[in-house]
Deep mutational scan, measured.
Amino acid sequence: MFYPNSPQTSPQLTQIPYGQQYAMMQRQIQQPYHPFATTEPQARLYPYHYQGPIQQEQGGFITQQSTAASPQYVQMRVTPVDQSIMSGYPNQTANGSSSSSFNYNIHPQQQQQQQQQQQQLRHHAMPVGSVPLQDDRYRKQLIVNYLAPDVTSTDLHELFSRFGELDGARIIYDKQTNMSKGYGFVYFCHAEDAKEAVERMSGYEFHGKWLKVGYSTNPLNIVPSNSSPYVHAGSRGAAG
């Protein structure tokens, strides 16, 4: 039997160049792979992502010199942007860049009308829970959420009447099932009393439920100042 490094198959040491006398086997001759043993700084910083320098080929596509990437890492192929796409944008300079302001050559009167329309939209648009300043009635009506099913309009009136005089209180019921929808409205005579009720009743436990109280901004629920107070009856038909 002959071994790869046996004296019968191995040459004389004098015939082997210096430095390879003890590297006779194939696994010894093959050098191990060192990912950080390279002179390129990109490979030292990113050993798993770097795959060699990027070269520009004919046709405008950018390719990489090395083989496919590892399945664990996804390499994105980048193509140059066609400058003709950006030619339609206004205020574009000769080098292809555009300024931040756009001039669509709008007539001054049209621009003024658009600004007025935007101001009107901001004036009428009102986020949930906010209180408008032009109508004091919005500051007097509250919406009470997360009410228990057994709470009546009379219970709601008695709960909030300790903060001040009320114009009314009612629970909203479903017309088909005649069941409470879980929320109601309270109408105060003074805005200061309503503000105190919002601050003190939010998070209050009532009939096993934690109440959420806020201003009601729905104009359909506003009680006119010259109208008669609501009837605080315990029956659902009268309260709904």
Score class of each variant (00 low, 15 high):
Gln109Asn: 13
Leu159Cys: 03
Pro71Gly: 06
Asp150Glu: 09
Gln113Val: 11
Leu142Ile: 03
Asn178Asp: 14
Gly234Glu: 09
Glu196Lys: 07
Val81Glu: 07
Arg236Ser: 05
Gly19Pro: 10
His34Ala: 09
Gly182Ser: 07
Asn105Cys: 11
Phe102Arg: 04
Pro32Trp: 12
Ser202Thr: 10
Val131His: 10
Ile62Thr: 08
Tyr146Asn: 00
Gly129Phe: 15
Gly203Leu: 01
Tyr204Arg: 05
Tyr173Ser: 04
Thr79Gly: 07
Thr177Cys: 03
Thr79Ser: 05
Thr14Lys: 06
Asp150Ala: 06
Ala194Ser: 01
Asn218Thr: 01
Gln176Tyr: 09
Gly203Met: 01
Tyr73Glu: 02
Gln31Val: 15
Gln134Tyr: 10
Pro71Tyr: 12
Gln75Ser: 05
Ser216Gln: 00
Pro149Thr: 10
Glu57Trp: 15
Gly182Pro: 08
His49Trp: 15
Ser130Asp: 09
Ser216Met: 00
Gln72Glu: 07
Ile54Gly: 09
Gln55Val: 14
Gly237Gln: 14
Asp174Arg: 01
Asn218Ala: 01
Gln116Ser: 10
Lys209Thr: 00
Gln31Leu: 13
Ser87Lys: 10
Tyr104Met: 15
Pro35Asn: 04
Ile171Val: 09
Gln113Arg: 11
Pro80Val: 11
Leu133Ile: 11
Phe160Ile: 01
Met24His: 05
Pro4Ala: 10
Gln26His: 10
Gln118Met: 11
Gln64Pro: 07
Arg170Cys: 00
Tyr204Phe: 09
Met179Lys: 06
Gln58Thr: 14
Pro47Lys: 02
Lys175Phe: 08
Gly234Met: 05
Thr79Tyr: 15
Glu205His: 07
Leu166Pro: 08
His34Cys: 12
Arg162Gln: 13
Asn226Ser: 06
Tyr138Met: 02
Thr217Trp: 02
Pro35Ala: 13
Met24Ser: 04
Gln30Ala: 02
Tyr22Lys: 07
Val151Ser: 02
Val81Gly: 11
Gln92Asn: 08
Gly59Pro: 08
Glu199Val: 05
Asp136Thr: 03
Pro108Thr: 11
Asp155Phe: 00
His49Glu: 06
Asn226Trp: 12
Gln112Trp: 15
Tyr89Met: 01
Ile172Ser: 00
Val128Cys: 06
Ser101Met: 15
Ala37Ser: 11
Val213Ser: 00
Pro224Met: 13
Tyr230Gln: 07
Gln65His: 12
Glu205Leu: 09
Pro35Tyr: 10
Lys195Pro: 10
Ala94Gly: 05
Tyr73Arg: 03
Gln51Ser: 10
Ile222Pro: 02
Tyr3Arg: 10
Tyr173Gln: 05
Pro17Ala: 10
Asn226Ile: 05
Leu133Lys: 04
Gln8Ile: 13
Ala23Val: 13
Val81Cys: 10
Arg77Thr: 12
Lys209Tyr: 00
Asn5Gln: 04
Tyr48Ala: 09
Ser130Trp: 14
Pro35Lys: 02
Val128Thr: 07
Thr14Glu: 14
Gly88Tyr: 14
Thr67Leu: 11
Pro132Gly: 10
Ser100Phe: 14
Ser101Ala: 10
Ala37His: 13
Gln56Asp: 03
Ser216Ala: 00
Ser225Val: 06
Val231Asp: 04
Pro7His: 13
Ala69Met: 07
Gln28Arg: 10
Arg236Met: 05
Arg27Pro: 14
Pro7Phe: 15
Gln83Cys: 13
Gln42Pro: 04
Gly184Tyr: 03
Leu156Gly: 06
Ser202Gln: 13
Pro229Asn: 11
Met24Pro: 03
Gly19Arg: 08
Arg137Cys: 02
Gly237His: 10
Thr217Ile: 05
Arg122Pro: 07
Leu220Asn: 04
Gln113Lys: 04
Gln28Ala: 10
Tyr46Ser: 04
Val81Arg: 11
Leu142Cys: 08
Thr79Asp: 12
Ala197Thr: 01
Pro149Asp: 02
Lys140Thr: 12
Gly52Lys: 04
His190Gly: 03
Leu13Phe: 12
Gly52Glu: 06
Gln20Met: 15
Gln116Asn: 07
Ser70Gln: 14
Ser180Ile: 02
Tyr138His: 04
Pro11Ala: 04
Ala125Phe: 15
Gln30Cys: 12
Leu147Arg: 03
Met25Leu: 04
Gly237Tyr: 01
Glu40Tyr: 09
Gln120Gly: 07
Gln72Ala: 05
Pro80Phe: 13
Pro71Trp: 11
Ala194Cys: 03
Gly52Asn: 07
Gly96Trp: 11
Val81Leu: 04
Tyr50Arg: 02
Ala69Tyr: 14
Gln55Pro: 10
Ala125Pro: 12
Thr177Ser: 06
Thr67Lys: 02
Ile171Ser: 02
Cys189Trp: 02
Pro127Met: 13
Asn145Pro: 05
Pro229Lys: 02
Gly214His: 03
Pro4Ser: 12
Arg44Met: 15
Arg236Cys: 02
Glu57Val: 14
Phe61Tyr: 13
Lys209Leu: 00
Ala148Phe: 01
Val186Asn: 01
Tyr50Met: 15
Asp150Val: 05
Arg170Trp: 00
Leu121Asn: 04
Ser235Val: 03
Glu205Ile: 04
Arg236Ile: 05
Gln115Tyr: 14
Ser97Asn: 10
Ala239Val: 11
Val74His: 05
Pro127Ala: 13
Tyr18Cys: 07
Leu220Ala: 07
His232Cys: 07
Ile143Lys: 00
Asn221Trp: 15
Lys140Gln: 11
Gln64Lys: 12
Tyr46Asp: 02
Met179Leu: 10
Tyr3Asp: 06
Gln111Lys: 03
Gly164Lys: 00
Tyr33Pro: 09
Tyr215Val: 01
Gln65Glu: 03
His107Met: 13
Asp150Lys: 02
Phe163Thr: 02
Gly182Gln: 11
Gln112Ile: 13
Arg236Leu: 05
Pro219Glu: 00
Arg44Ile: 15
Ser180Thr: 13
Ala233Leu: 12
Pro108Ala: 09
Thr38Met: 13
Thr67Arg: 09
Gly60Thr: 07
Trp210Phe: 06
Gln12Phe: 15
Asp167Thr: 01
Phe206Thr: 01
Thr9Asp: 09
Pro127Gln: 05
Gly184Pro: 06
Gly60Asp: 07
Gly96Cys: 10
Gln112Pro: 08
Tyr146Lys: 00
Asn105Phe: 13
Tyr33Ser: 09
Phe160Ser: 02
Met201His: 01
Val78Trp: 15
Ser66Ile: 12
Val151Met: 02
Val131Phe: 10
Ala148His: 12
Pro108Phe: 06
Gln21Ala: 11
Trp210Asp: 02
Gln92Ile: 13
Gln72Ser: 07
Arg170Thr: 00
Arg170Gln: 00
Tyr183Trp: 00
Gln72Val: 14
Ile222Asp: 02
Ser100Val: 15
Lys195Glu: 07
His107Cys: 06
Ala43Asn: 03
Ala169Gln: 06
Phe206Met: 11
Ser227Met: 11
Ser99Phe: 14
Thr177Lys: 08
Ile16Glu: 12
Lys175Gln: 10
Pro4Thr: 10
Ser228Asp: 03
Gln114Arg: 08
Arg122His: 04
Gly19Trp: 15
Leu121Val: 07
Tyr183Ile: 00
Thr93Ala: 08
Lys175Glu: 01
Tyr50Gly: 08
Asp193Lys: 02
Lys181Ser: 01
Pro80Gln: 05
Phe206Ser: 01
Tyr187Met: 00
Asp135Glu: 07
Tyr50Cys: 11
Glu205Met: 13
His124Ala: 11
Phe160Met: 02
Asn178Arg: 12
Leu13Gly: 06
Lys175Pro: 04
Val144Glu: 00
Gly168Met: 13
Leu156Tyr: 10
Ile222Glu: 01
Tyr230Val: 05
Gln56Val: 13
Ser161Ala: 10
Gln51Gly: 13
Ser235Glu: 09
Val231Arg: 10
Pro41His: 13
Tyr3Glu: 02
Val186Ile: 06
Asn178Lys: 06
Phe102Asn: 03
Arg236Tyr: 01
Met201Asn: 01
Asn218Gly: 00
Ser180Gln: 04
Gln55Trp: 14
Met24Asn: 06
Ser130Lys: 04
Phe160Lys: 01
Met179His: 06
Leu211Gln: 00
Gln58Trp: 15
Ala239Gly: 13
Arg162His: 10
Leu13Met: 13
Gln65Ile: 13
Met24Gly: 08
Gly164Gln: 03
Ala43His: 09
